[in-house]
Design a protein around this nucleic acid. Sequence first.
DNA 1: GTTCCTGCAAAGGTTTTGCACCATA
DNA 2: TATGGTGCAAAACCTTTGCAGGAAC
Lengths: 149, 149
Amino acid sequence: MNARGRAWAERAYRELAARGHRSGGARSAVIEELARGGGCCTAAELAHRLRDGSRPAGTASVYRALGVLHEAGLVHPVDLGDGERRWELVYDDGAHHHHLVCERCGRTVSFDDTALEQAIAAVAGRLGARLAAHDVVLHGRCSACGGRD
Amino acid sequence: MNARGRAWAERAYRELAARGHRSGGARSAVIEELARGGGCCTAAELAHRLRDGSRPAGTASVYRALGVLHEAGLVHPVDLGDGERRWELVYDDGAHHHHLVCERCGRTVSFDDTALEQAIAAVAGRLGARLAAHDVVLHGRCSACGGRD
DNA sequence: GTTCCTGCAAAGGTTTTGCACCATA
DNA sequence: TATGGTGCAAAACCTTTGCAGGAAC
């Protein structure tokens, strides 16, 4: 696991403890797997990886762990339009990325863009809104699938 | 119904006829209701409105009508994160909007923004992608719920 | 008359909930 | 030991599919 994931996991343990949550095996396994994989996975994928890995966890426990992490602001749900909810890690410094879903090969490309973030901040200001989160999902063809044709 | 909705409905009839689809009661009712409401509704809402209105339609027919309209590029699915798929009308001129979901009052605010569109187009160019569609969903507090506090 | 559309019912997939048991603090 | 976490099973929910009957062309 990279240092970024490790730091996120440690913060998650601290934050959940501060909120009065006890430490349980299934939830810790979910936190570790999220930190290892870097997010962007569905509950089913998470459960599957845990089943093949060190610490299997029941489906309900995976969903409940994700719910608690979401309440604590440690993960953020993303919907790519395929009917399954994905979960992204929320980092301390606000760093995050968005997604391009290729409608030909089905792959998901992650990206970040400063100008896009600035445009979103400007829109929020114009609307008089205070943003807690935002999602951008692009649909089309990735560069490998003839995006430039 | 406004002129924009009427024009969209007429185009929908033309486009579906051109694709060899026959005209059926349920599908026409869905088209009329979408044109009347201007989109941004779920399949269940659509079915409910039709039940209370002139022409009830079965759940399956509503979903099938939306599927056909989607294939023809006449509607676009949007996921606001509440587990239900919403459908937006796709207009001839490409005009569209995005959404701010207030996490306090639950309301959805629609907006459009030229700078945001330009930023998205620039990102697509940088990624070498050709976009067919894109979604932006903002989460936070709308101006009425203390966005500016 | 053939083919597609429709509606009911059933199935499918994801997510949530009830409940008994177990682990943590 | 009191409380919260866990896992199984069942339910709830949205969406899709199978099939028989009816409508459009």
